Amino acid sequence: MYRENSTVISAPPSVVWRLTTDVERWPSFMPTVQQLTRLEAGELRVGSTARVKQPGQTAAVWTVTRLTPTTEFTWETRRMGLRMIGRHLLAPEGDGTRNTVSIEVTGRGAGLFSAFFGGLIARVIQQENAAFARASTQTTPTP
């Protein structure tokens, strides 16, 4: 299963990137994240982990698998025998940023998971992208 949502945010990539990688701040502006705890100190990097609690779910540990400064942040978790990959892609577009949020679910039960939860997942990533857009326009750019 693969779901993606893309939008243009009226903020420079540096602002959107700062919000994207400041994952501990997500619960303050994102309704789809109730609690998020980094499991290591320091900057987000490949191998960093965080415990994420979302509404209606038990907490899951997500591990950063790819981090390309200002353009890509990817992390993944395993739940119920499924591998879930969350990706955030940023690209300059005009005076703003094209922000693409996606989730990919693979594994033996991915088809069944998609049948039951595909629509919900699509709504969740749309809500997350809208939350990034709102928070980005309320943040002051850094030079």
Rank of each mutant, 00 (worst) to 15 (best):
V23Y: 00
R51H: 05
R3N: 10
A131N: 06
R83T: 15
Q57P: 10
T20N: 06
H88E: 01
T97R: 03
V23A: 03
D22L: 09
P143I: 01
M1S: 11
T32F: 04
S28R: 14
A115G: 08
V8A: 05
P92V: 10
R98Y: 04
G109H: 10
Q126S: 13
G119M: 05
H88F: 06
E76H: 09
N99L: 13
R25Q: 12
E72C: 13
L82G: 01
A91C: 11
V33R: 10
R134S: 04
P31T: 09
V16P: 02
G81L: 09
E104T: 02
F113R: 06
R134T: 09
E24C: 03
A41Y: 13
A110D: 06
A135Q: 11
S48V: 12
T71W: 06
S136W: 00
E76M: 11
S14K: 11
A131L: 06
F29R: 07
P12E: 14
T65P: 03
R83P: 06
Q34G: 07
F113D: 08
T100E: 03
S102K: 02
L112Q: 03
P55C: 11
T100F: 00
A115C: 07
I9R: 00
P69R: 12
A130H: 05
A41I: 14
A135G: 05
M1E: 03
E76T: 08
L67R: 03
L39W: 05
E104S: 00
Q57D: 15
I85R: 03
G118V: 00
L120P: 00
Q138N: 10
G111P: 04
G94L: 09
T140Q: 14
E72Y: 10
R51G: 03
G96S: 13
W75Q: 06
L112W: 05
G56K: 14
S14I: 12
T20Y: 00
V23T: 01
T49H: 15
S28I: 12
A59Q: 03
